[in-house]
Design a protein around this nucleic acid. Sequence first.
DNA 1: GTTTTTATTGCAAATGATTTGCAATAATTT
DNA 2: AAATTATTGCAAATCATTTGCAATAAAAAC
Lengths: 145, 145
Amino acid sequence: MGALLEEATEILRSRGGRMTNQRKRILESLELLGSHPSADEIFAFVSQSDPTLNLSTVYRTLRWLEQEGLVSARHFHFDEDRRTDRFDAASPIDHHHFICTECKSVIEFDNRLIGEVKNQFSRQTNCWVQSVSVVLYGLCPNCQK
Amino acid sequence: MGALLEEATEILRSRGGRMTNQRKRILESLELLGSHPSADEIFAFVSQSDPTLNLSTVYRTLRWLEQEGLVSARHFHFDEDRRTDRFDAASPIDHHHFICTECKSVIEFDNRLIGEVKNQFSRQTNCWVQSVSVVLYGLCPNCQK
DNA sequence: GTTTTTATTGCAAATGATTTGCAATAATTT
DNA sequence: AAATTATTGCAAATCATTTGCAATAAAAAC
């Protein structure tokens, strides 16, 4: 059983919530589908094993997970694409993204210089920085030919 | 007359386009309203001087400017906010943003380390990076009290 | 284990942002 | 000044997401 599911169950319990089948499956799918799925993609995936699942349940669960800090929602700006949110089972602080504008694949990365950018900005402006989002857009090796 | 208006006029001419009153006013407003306005805000502003302007004209003009690389559209992920695009008369490459999640104010900044992050990533992955988007979220000095 | 309570679901309808089809309008060309 | 056609305004469509509400099903109380 994944860490996300356990953590979510605990939070749920602590406020009189209920761990339903739908929620279990949505949480599972977030761990299985690693690739920043959209609500629709999660819905399609979970529907295979539970055809009665409703899309609004997916949205409700994701938004709840987001509020609890267990999931982060981001909006990648693909050039001509629709503007759908994509969800990610990790904290937004500890990794960043490269997006291939051709094949839409996503590569995660981290770089300690980003923390430095954040610190320098804080020092210069006295702003308190809570989170940093870095997205690189370009072409992956496959799509460069 | 602003540089944006001149550049846009030239591009327009070069492909049999027409510099209309509406387009002029929308371009002007992009220079006057510096603060990453939404299509709605641009519409409200220009409507004051031209009450017949239509919102879809604003969208069409903005998308066209985006395609020509004269404007960039971004979607800032304000926590509970609606997901509206915000527009910016500058190239997305040469500056980045801090957003105060409380008062929604935007501070632009740049930092040469960001170019370094980009270069390191390219070297390590052989991805070609076209543009970089960095958004810091947090609290501005005023909202920290 | 059955009944009660109420959080959660499914459904359908609402929403908000953005886009599109089309006839009317107005820049530019002739 | 007339002809051409890019652009507009309008209304309706679309897409992603949210919401109200009655039905359902966890968990609690018996």
